[in-house]
């Protein structure tokens, strides 16, 4: 029998406070919720320049969560989103379940994005933008992840945590500079 004691809320709060988390949600992400989270993030970040960058990256992050989270019947917590602040950066962190057989493709893509500089990322972006495969909009043809890297200006940090043979939990941290 699971029995969470009342300290759980305190401990979670302490954990969030310690990591300077400004905004978080764990559960199912609906379009209405995304609108609310975005407007909260807007009012939370004072610096307009940073806010615009965070806003851009955040929309792509949340879209990825709604699009790519593995939906398992009865699962109340398919994904988590956090917006927080490190010493020098705002960070956006997401976590979602994915099928294990998708790990390789995603990791290959992340390695590629992390290996490219701004100019190379822009070239790749333009290549996809102008390609004729305009009917394959399901995943945005991969523009989102390149866009996030361009707006962030920092390398992605990520991890895949094995849940069982068929499922993994994918975490991604995107930093947005203060400048």
């Amino acid at each position: 029998m699971k029995n969470i004691n009342s300290q759980f809320a305190y401990e979670t709060h302490q954990l969030m406070e310690g990591a300077d988390v400004r905004l978080s949600f764990s559960g199912e992400f609906s379009p209405d919720l995304i609108t609310v989270l975005l407007s909260m993030a807007k009012s939370n970040i004072g610096d307009k320049l940073v806010m615009k960058k965070v806003y851009n990256v955040m929309i792509e992050c949340l879209e990825n969560l709604t699009k790519h989270s593995l939906k398992i019947e009865g699962d109340q917590f398919p994904a988590i989103f956090l917006l927080g602040k490190d010493d020098e950066y705002y960070f956006l962190a997401t976590g979602n379940k994915i099928a294990s057989n998708e790990v390789n493709e995603l990791e290959t893509k992340l390695i590629k994005v992390n290996s490219l500089n701004k100019k190379e990322l822009m070239l790749w972006y333009n290549e996809i933008l102008t390609s004729e495969t305009s009917s394959s909009f399901k995943g945005g043809a991969g523009l989102g992840i390149i866009d996030m890297a361009l707006k962030s200006g920092n390398r992605f940090e990520y991890n895949f945590n094995k849940i069982d043979n068929y499922h993994s939990f994918f975490t991604l941290k995107v930093k947005v500079g203060q400048k």
Partner: peptide, 13 residues
């Protein structure tokens, strides 16, 4: 003011 990556291709069109 803002467009997501999904919109980018249509804006290009």
């Amino acid at each position: 003011e803002y467009y997501n990556s999904l919109s980018a291709k249509f804006i290009f069109s």
